[in-house]
Nucleic acid binder design. Structure first.
Lengths: 216, 216
DNA sequence: GCACGAATGCGGGTCAACCCCTATGGGCCG
DNA sequence: CGGCCCATAGGGGTTGACCCGCATTCGTGC
């Protein structure tokens, strides 16, 4: 496995809420709160500086609200996952957040119950929602996500083989390591490259580095 | 050119010194102070969190001195360059710092004069020293660096070709771009891989990423 | 139960990558 | 001037990467 450490930034104007979230987050050995902010503009600065894996932000932030902040974060750092805390259990809000690039949506009332699961989900680059989200919206989004995922995501086996290739192993070595035929390795390699629209081994290595599958 | 923004962390137990350094640093449009610390242990935490390009640290830090801190930083984040501030114009100190992995050495008395030049040098991954460094030590180090460089560094042509390979170009494409024969491209590629002791294209791409020849 | 995707495997082919060796012309340095 | 490195180029060969299609097995879901 690659390093599973998640670097997290919190943004909420209530110190007490940050404190609570931080203590919950810190209970996980691989999660680190590496920055905090009390308003939206500051949050953007902090995110810019520390480049976290995940930003947990309040929807109602001073200076720049959660929606604008989400857009700004995803624009500059698309690989930072955004989890939004909100009091509004409204699906128009959720829909806006989703299209802005947020991948997590957590009602404050249910935060303590779902926070760990939500961060866990975002760690795996999966979406997470709480609240009375209407089935139709959820379906629509899940479908959208599934379409996108099937276009970009690899099966576990493909990912494993991509990792070994990117580490410099030859197909023959990979076949030996995984006790597979070279043909199988070639099939997975080809499937991964087709899905990701990569045309050379070099592209594949850069993909692996960008996506933290390997260390450069 | 790649993004020339340099993310910098400062560590000094004197708030006033950090303030001064920060204001000098910030006068450069592409340099950002993204973290500060008042002692060595805190500095290590901050560096771990923000992963800066450059750490500017005091030699005499509480909790963990500049030498230990340099070792710790280079161990975890070898790509972070370390610039050490010190009052001691002693070459045994400098020698220790150099072997620990620091690449910059600045006397506090001359700091304001040389700070920008030092950061500029480290940005380009070149060493920088101030003070009455003895000619012999400097010679020894320069020689060492030269030996290391000649062992690992590529000729301009080889570097150019390594870059193109790592960007995903085929030998044939490279030959067309540079108006060379494929054989020549192969020769340079083989020479580079022999020098660097790399055995696959994937190794070469990782080398290129680690050494900032390409963006991942 | 049938459809579908994931994982596994094979054959046969093309082309690129890599290996070893050789060679030449230009520039630089002692 | 005589090495020495660099950039250039080639011959000739082996191996690996990638393309096409096809098949089986297994589990999940409708």
């Amino acid at each position: 496995m690659s390093s599973p450490v998640r670097r997290i930034v919190l943004a909420d104007d209530h110190e007490a809420i940050r404190l609570g979230v931080r203590s919950v987050i810190s209970s996980h050995p691989d999660w680190r709160v590496v920055g905090e902010a009390g308003d939206g503009r500051e949050a953007l600065e902090v995110v810019r500086s520390v480049r976290p894996d995940i930003a947990i932000i309040d929807y109602s932030l001073p200076m720049m609200n959660g929606l604008e902040l989400t857009r700004a974060i995803k624009k500059e750092l698309p690989r930072t996952e955004v989890l939004v805390f909100t009091m509004h259990d409204r699906e128009d809000v959720l829909a806006e957040l989703l299209t802005a690039g947020a991948r997590g949506y957590l009602l404050k009332s249910e935060a303590s119950k779902h926070l760990l699961a939500a961060v866990e989900a975002l760690s795996l680059r999966r979406p997470y929602f709480s609240g009375n989200v209407s089935q139709t919206l959820l379906d629509r989004f899940v479908e959208m996500a599934a379409r996108e995922a099937s276009a970009t995501a690899l099966t576990p086996r493909e990912r494993e083989i991509v990792q070994l290739i990117a580490e410099g192993r030859l197909n023959k070595e990979i076949a030996a390591i995984l006790e597979l035929s070279i043909k199988t390795v070639e099939t997975h390699r080809a499937a991964a490259m087709r899905k990701l629209d990569l045309k050379s081994t070099a592209d594949l290595v850069r993909y692996a580095v960008r996506n933290n599958i390997i260390e450069p």
